[in-house]
Design a protein around this nucleic acid. Structure first.
Lengths: 120, 120
DNA sequence: TCCTTAGTTCAAAATTACTTGAACTTTTGA
DNA sequence: TCAAAAGTTCAAGTAATTTTGAACTAAGGA
């Protein structure tokens, strides 16, 4: 199961900005960062919308080079491409995450990493 | 002759990213940064497209809080809102400008319609 | 095997963004 | 006063994006 990802140098600044300039996707990236190191399944983001919607937005993020998607059974495990983004656009992701830090949490009630994270 | 601008705390991260996620506007902001301190008239950006098009994009940038527009005679003088952006989203603009730094200059042999020349 | 879980894909609808040209305002200069 | 310069605004068209629901695949468990 090979899923296409752009190589590091195929990642474009305008596209990364456009993709993160959407509230749903900004929430996804902020949540991924909060759970850094842990791969999250798509279902983690269910509070943000329907399965179809999340699938659409995660595909956009993958195609922009922001996330990496790995197939594992029936799950897709999503991680942030921190190293690639840092190499391509130094400081960019960190400043976005810092600014996005005061966004409301994904699921107000459960603690972030406990239930949904899949340890790597 | 007061033109509306958002206050500092009205500037939203998602909107700033969305507005800068457009090749024309990214080129405008890069050019403004290169001429830091100098206010530029809209006509400066003519190589990027028609008057109407530039007016549209500059309005988007102003409404997002990225630029400041001051009326001076028949001109509108455009400046970057560096301090406000830095206060609101520390490091964000600098990292974007650094990444956009290798964009081709406005007038270096590129024809007006060539948006493809503008990439991260 | 059958059923459930996890997620994708497709097509249509709804929404939003971008571009264009014509008409307009305001200011400046002759 | 008349005309040009600098931009804006409006209306229309085109294009891109987002959302939805139904149908689908693939893996796992009883």
């Amino acid at each position: 199961m090979h899923i296409w990802h752009p190589t590091r140098d195929q990642i474009s600044l305008a596209n990364v900005l456009a993709v993160l300039g959407d509230p749903t996707r900004l929430a996804i990236v902020a949540y991924l960062a909060r759970n850094d190191g842990n791969a999250l399944a798509c279902g983690t983001f269910n509070p943000l919308g329907s399965k179809t919607k999340i699938s659409y937005h995660l595909a956009k993020m993958r195609e922009a080079g922001i996330t990496h998607t790995e197939v594992s059974g029936t799950n897709r495990l999503i991680t942030l491409r921190r190293d690639d983004l840092e190499a391509r656009f130094p400081g960019l992701l960190d400043s976005i995450l810092a600014a996005a830090g005061d966004l409301p949490p994904l699921d107000a009630g459960t603690s972030p990493a406990e239930d949904t994270a899949i340890e790597g």
